[in-house]
Amino acid sequence: MDHSTATVTHGRSVWDGGASPMGASYGKLMMWFFLMSDAFTFSGLLITYGLVRSSNPAYVGTPSDFFFSTEHWPIPEKVFDAIPFFHGVEAPLVFVGFMTFVLIMSSVTMVLAVEAGHRMDRAAVEKWMLWTIIGGLTFLGCQAWEWTHFIVGTDTPTLMKVFDTKLGGWKEMEVLGANLHVNQYGPPAFADFFFFITGFHGFHVFSGVLLNFLIYYNAVTGLYDRRGHYEMVEKVGLYWHFVDLVWVFVFTFFYLV
């Protein structure tokens, strides 16, 4: 299957950089290298999460008897069980499932934009890029709601043992919502990892939407038609799929396991 839309080899000898050793153009290869390094960063975050989680005691008992405590790591489906506009309705993992759906669909529209780019079909590239941007923005909006709910908390506060630095000892107190110091769902590290991992991923989605918009703008103004190829769509597409890929892992390790 011939894939490379652009070849940088025109009029260059092998010794002048005319050869692409991995059968991919310079830009695509560099995008792959960047994604590798980015994968290591996310792996670092998720592995640290695994380390801290396995060092904390797991909840023993049936999920229906589950209660929030710093003594055990929370079951994710008991933390993420809210959906917008339905206050008090328990819908475990439904909202995050919707977010997964949105991101996968935006990945599909992205790959369709890449396919349209191979055919030099500007109108189709514009259409699919726009859908991808809409998908990205929808995901960001959902995440904003998710974070807000996580920070504000549930209806009833949790009585928790919290280390007071002024007192220099432990004290019982009612905790509502979450911050980096204390949270009502479980050990402080639980909320810290939530903020850092989903936050870092959300930042990637945000920059992905910006890049997608740039590509959309360039396609609309006809830059890629003048250039003779739509390889930029492909490169940014790689990044966007990677963002989707990371979410697949975050979804499993943070929300399901």
């Binding site: 299957m1 894939h3 991995m22 059968g23 991919a24 990945s107 599909v108 990677f242 989707d244 890929l245």
Partner: peptide
């Protein structure tokens, strides 16, 4: 989606 399956083996 990222088309890696169809790339050169080295990559």
């Amino acid at each position: 989606f990222m088309h890696l399956r169809y790339e050169v083996k080295v990559l």
